[in-house]
Amino acid sequence: MNDHSPAESRRLLADIDLDALRANVRALRERAVGGARLMAVVKADGYGHGLLPCARAAREAGAAWLGTATPEEALALRAAGDTGPVLCWLWTPGGPWREAVEAGIDVSVSGRWALAEAEAASRAAGRVARVHLKADTGLGRNGSPPADWSDLVAAARAAERAGTVRVTGLWSHFACADEPGHPSIAPQQAAFADALAVAARAGLDPEVRHLANSPATLTLPEAHYDLVRPGVAVYGLSPAPEIGSPADLGLRPVMTLRAFLASVKRVPGGHGVSYGHTYTTSGETTLALVPAGYADGVPRHASGTGPVLVAGKWRTIAGRVAMDQFVVDLGGDRARAGDEAVLFGPGDAGEPTAEDWARAAGTIGYEIVTRVGARVPRVYRGERAG
């Protein structure tokens, strides 16, 4: 366990179970068909769980690749000693292309400008740039549109012949794989197959072709190709309730968010609670103060709806979430300052889950865990030496 000082952790902490993460990676690897390997996506500080500890645990469980959004994340992995394949996909002009090429990081290219950046970085670094060409098969974010794909592929093949680039991957991303049976899924698969065919005719022979995110890893084996690319599932969250709960999918949530009560007091009926007095006590009651707020990642729009386990029961936030704190009404139940309040976890002890919070806040579990702020200490269980 990589713990923090008691003074630091007795307000609020995120308890990270790395053994659960390793088990999730192994379970997802078992889902991969046809010899497909697994890329563990560790972007956004490991979905709020901690980039480096989660990356190490994923590698220990057999993740062949790691995936990041920003170059800074990928370079942090290299600085920490990770030497395995890493893909970084969210690039802008003028980014640290040379540093990435020097570090042996695979970079994603969606257009001619990005290919030119990779080629320039290769010449500056004196090293071949490892490039994944991304096709826009229907998501409409990054990726080369079909009208430009042949030109991009031809330019990349020319760069290979010039010795500046090696096309190591061809890839795309689903828009609606979290909605089984969605009418966009089959056309995206067909568009990706077409993009692969164009690349093959141009003479490209990548190491990996990849399309499957978390929901596709779980439900679309025909989309697994050479590599599956789960993100949120690595951290034990279901990518969508329609696909199943974490337990249904053989996954276990990795993060438990715990707070410790800062105050417990009796108040009379008619007492307003928090800003705006959107909640008023109906009678004499006990209020408990949870020292966590929207600066820590507790959604303000979960005011009056967010669940928390205090004194053995589910409570709902009373009134508005403030920057650093919120209140729960305990009714006739007792508690003391310093008692634990569990905002979410795996649900083993009856506590809410991240999905419960997502429903309460009208969002998705991804946002609940990734928004847990940097000032919340992470405590790692199951960390291995070495």
Results as ranks from 00 to 15, higher is better:
residue 2 N to A: 14
residue 4 H to W: 12
residue 7 A to W: 13
residue 12 L to K: 00
residue 14 A to N: 09
residue 23 A to F: 02
residue 27 A to R: 11
residue 29 R to K: 11
residue 40 A to D: 03
residue 43 K to I: 07
residue 51 L to G: 03
residue 52 L to H: 06
residue 60 E to R: 13
residue 64 A to Q: 04
residue 65 W to T: 00
residue 68 T to A: 05
residue 82 D to F: 14
residue 89 W to K: 03
residue 91 W to C: 09
residue 95 G to Y: 11
residue 97 W to I: 12
residue 98 R to M: 08
residue 102 E to M: 11
residue 112 R to H: 13
residue 114 A to L: 13
residue 116 A to R: 15
residue 117 E to K: 00
residue 118 A to D: 10
residue 120 A to I: 07
residue 129 A to Q: 02
residue 132 H to A: 10
residue 137 T to S: 10
residue 142 N to T: 14
residue 145 P to C: 10
residue 146 P to H: 10
residue 147 A to T: 08
residue 161 R to E: 15
residue 168 T to K: 06
residue 175 A to D: 14
residue 179 E to A: 14
residue 180 P to R: 13
residue 183 P to Q: 08
residue 186 A to D: 15
residue 189 Q to T: 13
residue 196 L to H: 03
residue 197 A to D: 15
residue 208 V to Q: 09
residue 220 L to N: 01
residue 227 L to Q: 03
residue 232 V to R: 00
residue 247 A to Y: 00
residue 248 D to V: 01
residue 249 L to Y: 00
residue 252 R to C: 03
residue 258 R to C: 08
residue 258 R to K: 14
residue 260 F to I: 01
residue 261 L to T: 07
residue 264 V to D: 07
residue 273 V to F: 10
residue 277 H to N: 15
residue 277 H to W: 10
residue 292 A to T: 04
residue 295 A to I: 03
residue 298 V to I: 15
residue 305 T to D: 04
residue 311 A to V: 05
residue 314 W to F: 00
residue 316 T to M: 02
residue 317 I to R: 00
residue 334 R to Q: 15
residue 344 F to T: 04
residue 351 E to I: 06
residue 355 E to M: 11
residue 366 Y to D: 14
residue 382 G to N: 12
